[in-house]
Simulated assay, not measured.
Amino acid sequence: MTKNRYHSGPPSDHFDGVRFFNPGQETTDRGLRDMLRWKLGGAAQRWPEVVPVTQAVPNDRVAGIRVTMVGHASLLIQAAGINILTDPVWSDRASPFAWAGPKRVTAPGIAFADLPPIDAVLISHCHYDHMDMATLQRLHAAHAPVMAMPLGNDAIVRATIPDARCVTGDWWDAITLGGGVTTTLTPAYHWANRWPWDVRMALWAGHYLTTPAGTIWFAGDTGYGDGAIFGDIGARLPPPDVALIPIGAYEPRWFMAAQHVDPGEAVRIFRDVRAKQALGIHWGTFQLTDEGREAPRLALATALSTVGIAPRRFVAAHPGGVYDIATDDSDPRDATT
């Protein structure tokens, strides 16, 4: 068995000493036969080449909680005067190559030059649509933020940015980010790799932020599985003032269900963790799977209606959208409208 090139540590309920795994859940591993069955199925919907975006220009600091959608899983979280980016990707492609791979159809919702001072970066896992080394290099050079991430991901970052300020943790570990802000790494049902030979050698996770202004949960990338981890999150952590939950990249289900939720499952997560409000992320920027670009937004509306949740409580966030988050029981407000 190949030794882990990123992490060494004792076995646990989700680490066998070499590779991480999702305990008690369907395997996420997919072979060449599965890939060919999917890609030759010809079910991928056609996306537009470009979707217009009105870019936001953030304030330097925000006293309350404001979330600005950059695109896909990249968001600017401003809370209690601290500025945090999640899974930042400003590159044109989610790929190890500049000339191939999924190409973004929406410009970043914030121009890189318009970013406020960035204090921290949250990384959920090392897939290219979530860990973009070119962007992390730019952020390190311009802002030198602390970068919080699950086990093993620091080795990947430091191979390119040796002096990056990486801090790591396992599921349920709390990491101090400064300014009275901490992130607790939460479990997810997913997987990770950079290349075919390092599958599941670095961990995947979500981030639960505790700030003086309120709480924010960034779910990262996840399937639903048996739902146990979400009930556990809801039981162990206070209801987040806002949850950032993926709603896209889910078709075909036979291939994607173990690793990506669909909008109906996203609504189940919203209820499981008892979130007060939510923003739908991980849709509409890169075509990674078969569903049409607008399908996640439309399916989210249907799923909310089916269970009687007001649509304003769970909004499909669009690039450039600026959302002021109330910490009472009111709905998220799009500050761009």
Rank of each mutant, 00 (worst) to 15 (best):
residue 2 T to E: 14
residue 3 K to M: 11
residue 4 N to K: 11
residue 6 Y to N: 00
residue 6 Y to F: 14
residue 7 H to Y: 15
residue 7 H to W: 15
residue 9 G to F: 07
residue 9 G to I: 13
residue 9 G to E: 06
residue 10 P to D: 15
residue 15 F to A: 01
residue 18 V to E: 10
residue 18 V to C: 09
residue 20 F to M: 12
residue 20 F to G: 08
residue 21 F to M: 12
residue 24 G to H: 12
residue 25 Q to W: 06
residue 27 T to K: 13
residue 28 T to Q: 13
residue 32 L to I: 14
residue 34 D to C: 00
residue 37 R to K: 15
residue 38 W to R: 15
residue 38 W to P: 01
residue 40 L to K: 09
residue 41 G to F: 06
residue 42 G to A: 10
residue 42 G to F: 08
residue 43 A to D: 14
residue 44 A to G: 07
residue 47 W to S: 10
residue 47 W to Y: 14
residue 50 V to F: 08
residue 54 T to V: 15
residue 56 A to E: 07
residue 57 V to R: 14
residue 59 N to I: 03
residue 59 N to M: 14
residue 60 D to C: 12
residue 62 V to D: 13
residue 66 R to M: 10
residue 71 G to M: 06
residue 72 H to S: 10
residue 76 L to S: 01
residue 76 L to W: 00
residue 81 G to C: 11
residue 81 G to M: 05
residue 84 I to C: 02
residue 88 P to N: 06
residue 89 V to C: 12
residue 91 S to E: 02
residue 97 F to H: 14
residue 97 F to A: 12
residue 98 A to K: 07
residue 98 A to I: 12
residue 102 P to N: 03
residue 103 K to E: 13
residue 108 P to F: 10
residue 110 I to C: 04
residue 112 F to A: 05
residue 112 F to W: 09
residue 112 F to L: 09
residue 117 P to D: 04
residue 130 H to Y: 08
residue 132 D to H: 07
residue 136 L to A: 08
residue 142 A to N: 00
residue 150 P to L: 07
residue 154 D to M: 04
residue 155 A to P: 08
residue 156 I to L: 10
residue 160 T to K: 14
residue 163 D to R: 00
residue 167 V to W: 09
residue 168 T to Y: 04
residue 168 T to Q: 11
residue 169 G to A: 11
residue 170 D to A: 15
residue 171 W to R: 09
residue 174 A to I: 06
residue 185 L to K: 06
residue 187 P to N: 08
residue 189 Y to T: 03
residue 191 W to T: 14
residue 192 A to P: 10
residue 193 N to F: 14
residue 195 W to T: 15
residue 196 P to V: 14
residue 198 D to N: 10
residue 199 V to K: 13
residue 203 L to M: 15
residue 205 A to I: 12
residue 206 G to T: 02
residue 206 G to R: 09
residue 207 H to M: 09
residue 212 P to N: 05
residue 213 A to L: 12
residue 214 G to E: 05
residue 215 T to S: 14
residue 217 W to K: 07
residue 218 F to T: 01
residue 225 G to I: 01
residue 225 G to W: 02
residue 229 I to C: 02
residue 239 P to L: 05
residue 240 P to E: 09
residue 244 L to D: 02
residue 247 I to D: 02
residue 248 G to K: 01
residue 248 G to D: 13
residue 251 E to T: 12
residue 257 A to T: 07
residue 258 A to G: 01
residue 258 A to S: 13
residue 258 A to K: 05
residue 259 Q to A: 15
residue 263 P to M: 11
residue 264 G to V: 08
residue 266 A to V: 00
residue 267 V to H: 08
residue 268 R to W: 03
residue 279 L to G: 03
residue 280 G to L: 05
residue 281 I to K: 02
residue 283 W to V: 04
residue 283 W to Y: 09
residue 285 T to F: 06
residue 288 L to T: 04
residue 289 T to H: 11
residue 291 E to I: 08
residue 292 G to N: 04
residue 293 R to E: 13
residue 294 E to P: 00
residue 295 A to T: 15
residue 304 L to F: 11
residue 304 L to P: 03
residue 307 V to K: 11
residue 308 G to A: 05
residue 317 A to F: 11
residue 321 G to W: 02
residue 326 A to E: 05
residue 328 D to M: 06
residue 332 P to M: 07
residue 334 D to Y: 12
residue 335 A to E: 06
residue 335 A to H: 10
residue 337 T to I: 12
